[in-house]
């Protein structure tokens, strides 16, 4: 189970409304490489990891991704807060307003809604962990695109921080991948799967 802490993992305090940035940033909430996809991908894959090492890492990184969903959601919320209907229309967000008013909704930067197809899972630990490594690299690349598009230090700071988390997670997954490679792929070390 999980317990909530009433705080962000890293502080977010955006004072300047910026609907353009909100529209881009939402992809790290509901896009293919976003935090929601990451959290659900890892927390879904962990059940069929072959040992407690893999189950622990996917649980702990998946849990941290939940905290990143909250950071990104907070950023999108603060960027859109107090926007008038005219401002939303000018930013191309009137269709968002029609569907969701000022509520958050997980989509990518083009407004395509989140889908569970984003959390690829095969049940093969090597394939799944390799997928997770790629996911971290793609999320890092998207954070870099977003940093390029941003001009407010209050936005750039948390984006730099979240980008760095992708790098750490990538390296942890890579270590686990190499461990499983040795454990399962080397000759004479192949162990039967539990199924």
């Amino acid at each position: 189970m999980w317990s909530y802490q009433k705080r962000l993992q890293y502080p977010v305090n955006i004072k300047k409304k910026d609907l353009r940035m909100a529209k881009y940033l939402v992809t790290q909430y509901g896009g293919a490489n976003g935090e929601l996809a990451a959290a659900l991908r890892y927390l879904n894959q962990r059940y069929t990891m072959p040992d407690n090492k893999g189950k622990a890492l996917l649980t702990d990184i998946g849990t941290e991704e939940l905290a990143h969903i909250e950071m990104i959601s907070t950023m999108v919320y603060q960027l859109m807060k107090d926007a008038t209907i005219e401002e939303l229309e000018a930013a191309g967000l009137s269709s968002h307003y029609a569907e969701h008013s000022r509520a958050l909704f997980p989509t990518d930067a083009n407004g395509v809604p989140f889908t569970v197809a984003y959390f690829a899972t095969t049940g093969d630990p090597l394939a799944d962990i390799m997928e997770d490594m790629a996911a971290e690299q793609k999320a890092r690349a998207v954070y870099e695109n977003l940093i390029d598009l941003a001009d407010d230090p209050d936005v750039i700071g948390p984006l730099l921080w979240l980008r760095q988390r992708e790098i750490v997670h990538y390296n942890r997954f890579k270590e686990l991948f190499e461990y499983y490679q040795t454990k399962f792929e080397l000759p004479n070390k192949i162990e039967p799967r539990q199924d």
Binding site: K53, L57, D60, I61, E64, V168, H169, R172, E175, L176
Partner: peptide, 10 residues
Amino acid sequence: HELNLYLDNY
């Protein structure tokens, strides 16, 4: 937390 993730592997 960072050491937690590291210790999962080591």
